[in-house]
C-alpha cells in the first residue's frame, strides 16, 4: 500500500485504501468499454424488474383481433396467442425471474460464505464433516433433482422458487470461499494480525472478508445466472403449473403451443425471452470478466 508513508489515524488509512480500491476498479472498467456496457445492462435489468411492471396492468388485456401476429411497429416482437404484446410480457415477466434470482443470490452468498469461512478458518473435524456434506450436495445433479422436486412443490411465488434454488445452490460458493480462506489464512497479513493478538472476529470481518469480497461477488453473479437459467428452464420444460407470467412460461408456450418452430409468425414470441436471457448473460459475463481482473493479478495485462 502506498499510503504507509503518510502517518494518519486508522480511519483515514482505511478510507484511502478504499479509495485506492475504487480507483483500481475504475481503471479496470475504463480499459475496456465492454465492461461498462456490462454494468449498464445489469443496472438496466434491475430497473426493469423493479419498475417495469408498474407501467402495465396486473393482467395484460387479451386482444382477440391480434392473435399471434408477426413483429410490427405496434408490437415490436409481435403478439402471443392471446393477443398480448410480447414486449409487455417480457417486462412484466422479468419481475418473477429477477426477484427469485435475487433471493437465490442472497441465500447462496450468506450460506456459502459463512459455511466456507467457518470451515476454512476452523479446519479440523468440523471442516471435514461440512465439506463431506457439501461434496455430497454437489454430487446430486441439480436439474434432475429440481424435476423430481417439481412433483411435490409448486413453486408458486418467486420467493419460494428462490429459496429452493438457493438451498440447492450454496455448495459451489462454500467450496470456493473455503479454498480462498485456506490460502489467505497462511498469508503474512493474517499471521501478523494474529500475532498482534487481534480477535478472530476482527480478523474475519476486517481482514479476510474484504480481500475476498470481489471473489464472493463473482461467485454470486454466477449463482444468479444459474438460478435464472434453472427456473426459466423448469418452466420451459413444462413440469410446473403456469401460475404466473415469466420468461420460462413464454418459451414453453411459444415452442409447444404457438408452434414457433413451425410458423414464422410466432418467432418474435420465442425470440423475445431468448434475447432477454442472452442480454442478461452478456451483462453478467462482462461484469465477471472485469471482476476477474480486479481479483486475479495474474490475468492483469502488463
Amino acid at each position: 500500500m502506498s499510503d504507509t508513508l503518510i502517518p494518519e489515524t486508522g480511519m483515514s488509512t482505511s478510507a484511502t485504501m478504499r479509495r485506492n480500491f475504487w480507483l483500481g476498479v475504475w481503471r479496470v472498467m475504463k480499459r475496456k468499454p465492454s465492461r461498462m456496457a456490462g454494468v449498464v445492462i445489469i443496472v438496466g435489468f434491475a430497473f426493469m424488474g423493479v419498475f417495469g411492471p408498474m407501467f402495465f396492468p396486473d393482467h395484460l388485456p387479451d386482444n382477440p383481433n391480434a392473435i399471434t401476429q408477426p413483429p410490427s411497429w405496434a408490437h415490436w416482437f409481435g403478439t402471443d396467442p392471446q393477443g398480448r404484446d410480447v414486449v409487455a410480457l417480457v417486462i412484466t415477466g422479468s419481475r418473477y425471474v429477477l426477484l427469485s434470482a435475487a433471493v437465490t443470490a442472497l441465500i447462496t452468498v450468506v450460506f456459502g460464505t459463512s459455511l466456507g469461512l467457518f470451515s476454512g478458518f476452523k479446519r479440523g473435524r468440523w471442516d471435514t464433516v461440512l465439506m463431506r456434506i457439501t461434496d455430497m450436495k454437489l454430487t446430486i445433479p441439480g436439474l434432475p433433482l429440481l424435476l423430481v422436486l417439481a412433483t411435490v412443490w409448486k413453486f408458486g411465488s418467486p420467493i419460494q422458487m428462490g429459496l429452493v434454488l438457493g438451498l440447492l445452490g450454496w455448495g459451489g460458493v462454500a467450496r470456493a470461499v473455503r479454498a480462498q480462506t485456506l490460502s489467505l489464512r497462511e498469508r503474512g497479513f493474517i499471521e501478523a494480525a494474529r500475532g498482534l493478538g487481534l480477535s478472530t472476529k476482527h480478523i474475519i470481518s476486517k481482514e479476510l472478508l474484504p480481500s475476498m469480497a470481489p471473489y464472493i461477488a463473482m461467485n454470486m453473479l454466477i449463482a444468479v445466472t444459474g438460478a435464472v437459467y434453472a427456473q426459466v428452464g423448469l418452466f420451459f420444460l413444462g413440469v410446473l403449473p403456469y401460475e404466473s407470467d415469466n420468461w420460462g412460461v413464454m418459451l414453453n408456450l411459444a415452442v409447444f403451443q404457438a408452434g414457433a418452430m413451425i410458423t414464422t409468425n410466432a418467432l418474435g414470441y420465442l425470440l423475445a425471452p431468448l434475447l432477454a436471457i442472452l442480454l442478461l448473460t452478456l451483462g453478467i459475463v462482462l461484469v465477471v470478466d472485469a471482476m476477474d481482473e480486479i481479483f486475479n493479478p495474474r490475468l492483469r495485462e502488463e
Binding site: 428452464g233 418459451l251 448473460t281 453478467i284
Partner: peptide, 27 residues
C-alpha cells in the same frame, strides 16, 4: 476467443438449442 468462450459457456443449453432450431430448422 475468451469472450466467445465465456458467452457460449454462459448461454443456457436450451437457449442455444432453440436458436439453432430456429435458424436451421425453421428459417
Amino acid at each position: 476467443l475468451a469472450i466467445s468462450g465465456s458467452l457460449l459457456h454462459g448461454i443456457p443449453q436450451y437457449v442455444l438449442a432453440l436458436l439453432l432450431v430456429v435458424i436451421f430448422a425453421t428459417l
